[in-house]
Amino acid sequence: MSNVGIVIVSHSPLVAEGTADMVRQMVGDEVPLAWCGGNGHGGLGTSVEAIMAAIDEAWSEAGVAILVDLGGAETNSEMAVEMIGEPRSHKIVVCNAPIVEGAVMAATESSGGASLKEVVATAHELSPS
């Protein structure tokens, strides 16, 4: 698929899955989408391994935008991007945006064929800073 992929990373699998449901309701199957949540051991948290797998699942040559909730999700996502390495890492952006609104807006932008830069900019518009 040529549309930008969306990855949702939450500390909670319920939040991640629920956010993905809201994205699907908006864009159907027009956007590659994957989510992960939880520390991989049944607790709240984020797993670098699971994030790398989600990026693979939502991979698009147009790139992937990652939406995260709290700090650890961001740090682990940045680590995952680094471990995936070049050249794919250049096409993956961890967005600074609220996770639910950011994911829905970014996916909607992506479904219209927007570039990774445009998708990320749309998500970032939601951020107060």
């Binding site: 520390n39 051991h41 797993s47 670098v48 391994e49 650890g72 740090t75 682990n76 680590m79």
Partner: peptide, 14 residues
Amino acid sequence: VMTVGGASGPLFGT
């Protein structure tokens, strides 16, 4: 990095 499961994973891993 792969096993800690919180922000400490990437930080101590790094």
